[in-house]
Computed example of a mutant assay.
Amino acid sequence: MTELHAVTADGERVSAVLRRERLEPGAVDLLWSAAEVWRLFPATGTTGTAAMDALLRAWRAELDHESPGEDSACVVTWPSHDAEAIRAFLDHGLAPVTALATRTGPPEPGGHPEVTVRQARPDDFPAVLDLVLEVFEYSSLVALPRRGDAAELVAPRMRRKLEQDTGTVWVAEVGGVVAGLADCSWVDVTGDAGAAELLPPGSWGYLNNVGTAREVRGRGIGRTLAAAAHAYFHERGAAGTYLYYNPPNPLSSVFWHRRGYRPLWTIWEVRPASLLR
């Protein structure tokens, strides 16, 4: 880790911690992350745009001593409602690639007479894997990196989860054919690390991957799956549910807001890292 220090035009000193991360080949995180990441943790006080601008300039100068490759990124996770910082991020070439959104209300009415939701079984693996890959393929158009080995990265985890029968993976059937997936899990937010850096304490339901087959979109399948997941976690006392979505995605950015989700943290990013201005 490296400490960055900067001074605004008004003479106020601000600082940040810069952490460099490398992912090994075969890491599941490569599905949504660059292989080499420079991650900034700013401490800007109350100086808003000016402070963030000064830190981003210092960050750019620090990168001049590095040699980022093509599979690299500069990343900052920042409160979604801090409008003053947004101006600085945009000016320096960062884009709002991912948002963490939460939902804490009661489950919404759901269900569709043509859609049957049930827990996924091990023999659903081929259909489930196809749906997961379809989600990643679409996301690669609007936010995430395109990975040729996506199937190899995601398949072991998905197969293991179905075999363990966690009860938090559902499929939606239309006419007896699997047409949608909700891959979820419980996350206990405790201490001051991991999810606790972003969420209040408690047991949360995490909607990791919810997708509908392309040819049957618009028929209420995703809405029915989301309602089933929300009801499951609500009935078991979850503090709420959360997920990550891509603001540039014209499907998920609308769908999840309609389900009652609101962005809490936004992950700003520029790829490759050398494009930081």
Rank of each mutant, 00 (worst) to 15 (best):
V115Q: 04
R271Y: 01
R159E: 13
G218P: 06
A238I: 02
A213E: 12
V132D: 13
F41G: 10
E197C: 11
H234P: 01
A27N: 12
N249E: 10
A16Y: 03
A195K: 00
I221S: 00
V76L: 09
P248C: 06
V17H: 13
A238F: 03
T102A: 13
S185Q: 15
R236A: 05
A34Y: 05
G167I: 06
A150L: 02
A155D: 14
W265I: 08
R219I: 02
S253A: 13
G218Y: 07
T224A: 08
A239G: 07
M1Y: 05
Y206R: 10
F233L: 09
E235D: 15
P79Q: 03
N246L: 08
A27C: 05
Q164K: 15
L55N: 00
R13M: 09
W78V: 02
L30P: 00
A43F: 12
A99W: 10
L133W: 12
D130H: 14
V174Y: 07
T266Q: 09
A273N: 04
H230K: 04
I267E: 15
P107T: 08
T266P: 04
F255N: 03
A58M: 05
P200K: 08
T46A: 15
V189I: 10
A34H: 01
V254R: 15
A193K: 14
H5S: 14
V169E: 06
P106A: 10
N246V: 05
L55K: 06
V187Q: 14
E197R: 15
E36K: 03
R160A: 15
W59R: 08
T190F: 07
F136Q: 13
E197T: 09
A27K: 09
A120I: 05
R60A: 10
L198E: 13
W265N: 07
R147F: 03
L100E: 12
A193E: 15
W78Q: 04
V76C: 07
S80V: 01
P248F: 02
G222N: 02
T241W: 04
W204P: 03
G211I: 00
G218N: 05
H112Q: 10
H65I: 01
L56P: 03
L144C: 08
V154W: 10
T2H: 12
T266G: 08
W186M: 09
V169G: 08
E24A: 14
G222R: 02
A182M: 00
G48R: 08
L251F: 15
M52T: 13
H5F: 07
N249F: 02
A155N: 07
E163T: 13
G237V: 01
V128L: 11
E66Q: 12
G69E: 00
W32V: 14
A34V: 01
L162R: 05
R39M: 07
L129T: 09
R57H: 12
D71E: 03
G45V: 10
E235W: 04
V7A: 09
R262N: 08
A143S: 12
D53F: 09
R147E: 01
W32F: 14
T104W: 01
G176Q: 04
V117T: 10
A9H: 12
G11N: 04
T2L: 09
E152N: 00
E137M: 09
E163W: 09
R262Q: 14
V97W: 11
M52R: 12
D183V: 11
V210Q: 13
V210H: 03
L243T: 03
H65C: 06
E12T: 15
T47P: 00
G240Q: 06
G237A: 06
G45R: 07
A172E: 00
R258M: 07
V171D: 02
